[in-house]
Design a protein around this nucleic acid. Structure first.
Length: 197
DNA sequence: AGCAAGATCGCC
DNA sequence: GCGATCTTGCTG
């Protein structure tokens, strides 16, 4: 069965962690069996030097306080009607995080299809951050938990064939930060989100 | 208290 | 392309 990856996996600089996460599994253990997706796309957020990061102000708020905690914590937040999930990176007091943007369904396909409504192609189940959380059944209840704890954790996956980088998506007017190549995704994978081709 | 805006999605 | 509809944070 799947088991959580070691704690030390998270204790690397945020850009490295964002790249290393591509190709790993996200596992959500539920009563009917595990939901598993292989991560194919991430983005690094590098507060407080990164104007696009929620932690740019370098001041903990109710929303962002978990980013100041230890590496590997779960940072979830709401965007309109959707939940997005992040992995906290960096030492305590350093508000870095990695946004999980897309995945490839591996196991629990029936359940993921039901979570998304069965009228679409499989690649549309998880090719965006809001879609992925919905397919996996993740919500704000996981805020502040750790990515090595049941029932929602990162497990070691097969890795990625080739990871390429590009500018981040959807961050609008963030000064120079809009051009930083801090998006990591597996080359030619059809589950990568399709903004900014 | 009140309101504007956001690391988005799906349908018009 | 635009509207949905939730939480946060600042008073625009």
């Amino acid at each position: 069965m799947y088991k959580p990856i070691s704690d030390s996996f998270f204790e690397v600089p945020v850009l490295e962690l964002a790249q290393n996460l591509v190709g790993q599994y996200i596992v959500h253990n539920l009563e009917n069996g595990p939901l598993v997706a292989r991560i194919v796309e991430t983005e690094a957020y590098h507060g407080p030097e990164d104007q696009a990061a929620h932690s740019f102000s370098n001041r903990p708020t109710k929303r962002t306080e978990v980013m100041f905690g230890r590496a590997g914590l779960v940072y979830t937040y709401q965007m309109h009607t959707h939940t997005l999930m992040n992995v906290v990176a960096g030492a305590v007091g350093t508000p870095h995080a990695v946004l999980i943007r897309a995945g490839e369904p591996i196991e629990g396909l029936e359940q993921m299809g039901n979570n998304r409504g069965n009228h679409m192609k499989m690649k549309d189940w998880t090719n965006g951050p809001g879609k992925l959380t919905k397919a996996l059944g993740v919500n704000m209840d996981y805020y502040g938990r750790h990515w090595t704890e049941e029932p929602l954790f990162i497990a070691e996956g097969p890795g990625a064939i080739e990871v390429v980088t590009g500018p981040r998506v959807g961050i609008g007017n963030s000064g120079e930060a809009v051009d930083y190549p801090w998006r990591f995704f597996e080359k030619d994978n059809p589950f990568v989100s399709k903004y900014r081709p």
